[in-house]
Computed example of a mutant assay.
Amino acid sequence: MTSVQGQCDSAFAGVREVFEDSFADGQNLGAAVAVFADGRPVVDLWGGVADRRTGRAWAWDTPCVVFSCTKAVTSAAALLLAERGYVTLDAPVAEWWPEFARRDKGGVTVEHILTHRAGLPAFDGPVSVAEAGDPVAMAERLAAQAPEWEPGTAHGYHALTFGWLIGELVRRHTGMTVGQFARAEFGSDLWIGAPVGTIARAARVSAPRRGEPSSPLTDVATRTRIGDAYSAPGSLLFRATSNPPASYNDPALLGGGWPAAGMVTTARGLARFYRDLVFGVTLTPETLHYALREQVRGRDRVLLTDTAYALGFMLPAQSFELPDPAQAAAFGHPGAGGAVGFGDPGHGITFAFVPNLKRDWFDGDRRAHRLIEAVYAAVA
């Protein structure tokens, strides 16, 4: 039986129980969960296997790639620069990136990018992993593209392009990559562009073996619609998520600083990031309040399900299922491998779950959901 280690406040014993059960029933291989309540750490647990090939155990400081949870950190970088007066979020991007105005994109604003309305959800040609490690080259490609739809008129998940679009904002105003800026401003254990030593001790992502149990959260019709799009090379969903094509165990990806999907961190580090947002350390309360206003909601042109976006953060919707108590104030971002990070100012909660057994959140992975239910049960 997998041994779960770490600390857990007695009031949150239900979270530990759910976490332990997730290993007993085969839902998890290796994972960590962390919770802050009213700013103090109340759950910091880890367990299981970090590398299925070698049997290496998950340790207290094992980091793991968290896929699109990265977008919350990248978004916070843009919001912080706006707070400091570097950019105006509703002004055209072309004011500071003139080349971007080409191909009918002169009216695109930072707000359009943060809310997935820029019309650039996918690259219009193949991109290599090596090229993806060059933020200047990626920005040049996106500046040269025509949008898939008139910017501002619809929303569709910019699964990978989001990072390089916001990354150009950070680079042009600070001279740093998103990864460099995030570690300097938000925490030294948020690696967007991980060093060799961090990659070596990171958990290795694994796919479920045939016959391993699953318990999807989304309905059959939604899963079928999304599955069909994944298998159609011409669909926006396929194009947005599969180019550049890469393994998330590839050191070139993990070290390449992909600012929409490549962050390597611990559950502790991700939950702390949200704690600092909720409690006014990273952004002023006024900036966060402005950023969390709902901007768009409805059927997503890429994900083919209902999504809701604030400025860079997802809000509870079909694409980001959260328990009822979280519906009023929670914000955050899930990741394709099953990772989730979020904050809830109304309840004073921040949460992160980081697993290495890749279960697709598009398919409604329930592991984080059960843990989150237990968190809210503890504060009810």
Rank of each mutant, 00 (worst) to 15 (best):
S75C: 05
E185W: 11
I113G: 02
R268T: 13
V110D: 00
R52S: 07
V35R: 02
A221N: 02
G335Q: 08
L277P: 05
W60N: 03
A267T: 14
L315V: 09
V302G: 05
V110G: 01
F279K: 03
F342C: 06
T287I: 10
H173Q: 09
D25G: 00
G47E: 05
Y274R: 13
N28S: 13
D363I: 01
V127C: 04
L81D: 12
R201P: 02
G85Y: 13
P345R: 12
V87P: 08
H158M: 04
F353N: 03
N356E: 12
G6V: 15
G125C: 08
P285T: 12
V379K: 06
A368W: 07
G341S: 10
R268V: 05
E111C: 11
P216H: 07
D324R: 15
L253A: 15
C64L: 08
S188G: 07
R272T: 15
A76E: 04
S188V: 13
L80M: 15
G262P: 10
D38K: 14
G163K: 13
R52Q: 15
P355L: 14
A57W: 00
V375A: 08
V110K: 00
F23T: 02
A101N: 02
T218S: 04
H333S: 08
T177E: 04
A137P: 06
I226A: 11
R297Q: 00
R141S: 08
A377E: 14
A184F: 02
T224M: 03
W96Y: 10
P98M: 12
A260R: 02
A203W: 10
E294F: 03
S214N: 07
L292P: 00
R103V: 11
G257M: 10
F353L: 13
Y290T: 10
G337N: 14
R16W: 03
G280N: 04
L89K: 11
F313M: 11
N356T: 10
R16D: 06
R366T: 13
